[in-house]
């Protein structure tokens, strides 16, 4: 104790200097917008690179598992491709090859482009969780794109740097997904209440709709972020709040949010066009 006291007395100036500089650092990055931006940018770069290296190391040990996953995905894609060939009319090239609209007699193109990425940072502990991806604007990623795995949804890209992106996880209080019940057509809003990281709540489904645990929940296709009919999860339980005409449905997510590694960023090719049309329509009101 005495030695510690002597150390402080001898180097008290330095200790006080160090403590006060830390206080200044806190003040500077929290109350000065310019410095805050520089700090956030640097933290993203440094943190992103460190996460990436750490992730590479971990991934090396998971190679056999991932090989199995990729093979399984390959198989399912091949199956889909074979099935598609029988119903689709080839047009121009593979990417733009697509179905023939028998009602309008018109060719149409897919709305979404998929960009593969890896997760290099993921939180599920807080109430506002974020995921970091190792892909950014230079890889074609744009903000406001959905992020999925082959099992289900993961989140929405909110910030994209040149090399990295920050994804607002499904487990974020502000996340709101337009979801519907498979084969029933009714849709509602899927939100996270901040408790169980495996369960979200689906609201706004009218209580006259017959539902039961185990029913599949999919994307409605009414938002610009995710393609229609993409799997989200299954109904675990539900109740009807007193005085309400709508269910409160607990949905067990099909994607385990604690184990997200390989993802696809779903880029809506027509996002800007549709968004600007919707804005114009809103302005008209």
């Amino acid at each position: 104790m005495r030695a510690l006291l002597q150390l402080f007395l001898r180097n008290g100036g330095f200790f006080i200097f160090a403590v006060l500089e830390l206080v200044c650092f806190y003040l500077i990055v929290n109350f000065n917008p310019d410095q805050e931006k520089i700090y956030a940018h640097t933290a993203t770069l440094v943190g992103g690179n460190m996460n990436k290296r750490w992730r590479n190391m971990i991934d090396y040990y998971h190679l056999p598992d991932r090989l199995r996953e990729v093979s399984a995905e390959n198989d399912s894609l091949k199956t889909i491709l074979l099935r598609m060939r029988t119903v689709q009319v080839p047009y121009r090239d593979t990417f733009f090859t697509v179905s023939y609209d028998t009602l309008r007699k018109k060719m149409y193109r897919p709305d979404f482009e998929f960009i593969a990425a890896q997760v290099i940072g993921n939180n599920i502990g807080g109430s506002s969780n974020w995921i970091t991806l190792n892909r950014g604007k230079s890889d074609g990623i744009t903000e406001n794109s959905g992020v999925v795995t082959r099992n289900g949804l993961v989140g929405i890209v909110r910030f994209a740097d040149n090399n990295f992106s920050m994804v607002m996880s499904l487990l974020h209080r502000q996340t709101k997904i337009s979801a519907s019940l498979k084969n029933r057509g009714f849709f509602g809003s899927l939100v996270w209440d901040g408790n169980d990281p495996g369960v979200m709540t689906l609201n706004d489904i009218p209580k006259h709709v017959p539902i039961q645990p185990g029913d599949t929940v999919i994307t409605s296709g009414y938002s610009l972020l995710f393609p229609r009919d993409y799997p989200i999860g299954a109904i675990e339980s539900y109740d009807t709040p007193s005085g309400s005409n709508f269910y409160s449905i607990r949905v067990r997510l099909s994607q385990n949010m604690a184990d997200v590694r390989d993802v696809y960023v779903v880029k809506n090719i027509f996002y800007t066009q549709i968004d600007s049309l919707q804005r114009r329509a809103k302005d008209e009101q």
């Binding site: 650092f25 500077i28 410095q35």
Partner: peptide
């Protein structure tokens, strides 16, 4: 001084450094 300049922490940091 930061209080007047509206730059919390910046002059304070320089002041502490100068004192050191």
């Amino acid at each position: 001084v930061d209080f007047v300049y509206g730059s919390p922490g910046i002059h304070a940091s320089a002041g502490a450094f100068s004192g050191y």
